[in-house]
């Protein structure tokens, strides 16, 4: 069995004041192996972020199931699912979502707050994670005292501090200039080279080019897979990049 198995996942929801249900995902199935770096691509509203949150144990699918490391995620109770997120998953968000009133070190310590580690262990782990991101000298900076790239790296350090088997990134380069975006993608690739499994939502073909494989989604349906992204992909979304 694959590390992550997505089986026939459908998601519908009823917007407020609308009689009919909107379908966001239609019978999506996919598998991701341990150690893979996978991009999830698609235009706005295609359902890629919804799929990420479903894989991220945050949003119950209407149908289908998600199995990660042989755990059927939505068989767990809501509170146990929170524990699962803490133990198995690291999230990197588009806006980084650092808490503005906590220092870089404190932000990285957040996922450890609810663990049984003692104060010293928490601090040491967070320091190591930040040092790994090259931010060893910025522990006490508040987010607004950091550059966009540095904030992104703090967000990655926070996602990794629990050493989760799976890193989920939602458009980590979305709000960044291209240089900073490249910096973040570089960090992710380096992590993947060290064995980290990563699933990244992006609509940036350059970012997708850094991955092993692209899952393309449109109107809630998984279109196709390209085992080797970049210029071999043959998908419309890649063409602009290949043309360069």
């Amino acid at each position: 069995m694959s590390f992550i198995t997505i089986e026939n996942v459908t998601k519908t929801y009823q917007p407020n004041g609308v009689a009919s249900r909107a379908t966001v995902l239609r019978g999506v199935s996919a598998e991701i192996e341990e150690g893979e770096f996978v991009a999830l691509m698609g235009p706005s509203g295609s359902g890629k972020t919804t799929l990420l949150t479903i894989i991220g144990a945050m949003s119950q699918p209407t149908e289908g199931r998600v199995v990660i490391d042989e755990v059927d995620v939505y068989d767990l109770s809501e509170e146990r699912r929170a524990d699962f997120r803490r133990e198995y998953l690291g999230f990197v968000f588009q806006q980084h979502h650092l808490l503005p009133y906590l220092t870089a070190l404190e932000n990285v310590m957040l996922p450890l707050v609810i663990t049984k580690l003692n104060a010293k262990e928490k601090r040491t782990k967070a320091q190591l994670a930040l040092e790994r991101m090259g931010l060893g000298d910025k522990f006490d900076r508040l987010p607004n005292q950091l550059s966009g790239g540095e904030q992104g790296r703090v967000a990655i350090a926070r996602a990794l501090v629990n050493e989760p088997p799976l890193l989920l990134a939602d458009e980590p380069t979305g709000n960044l200039d291209s240089k900073t975006g490249d910096e973040i993608i570089g960090v992710l690739r380096a992590l993947n080279e060290q064995g980290q499994t990563i699933l990244m939502v992006t609509h940036n073909p350059e970012a997708a080019a850094a991955t092993h494989r692209v899952l393309e989604i449109q109107d809630g349906i998984l279109l196709s897979e390209s085992a080797e992204p970049g210029c071999h992909a043959g998908q419309s979304l890649m063409e602009e990049v290949c043309a360069d």
């Binding site: 945050m58 509170e79 524990d83 997120r85 803490r86």
Partner: peptide, 13 residues
């Protein structure tokens, strides 16, 4: 709250 929940904070937290 969304961030904390994503990071694995339980409702009770």
């Amino acid at each position: 709250v969304g961030v904390l929940r994503a990071l694995g904070f339980r409702k009770s937290h």
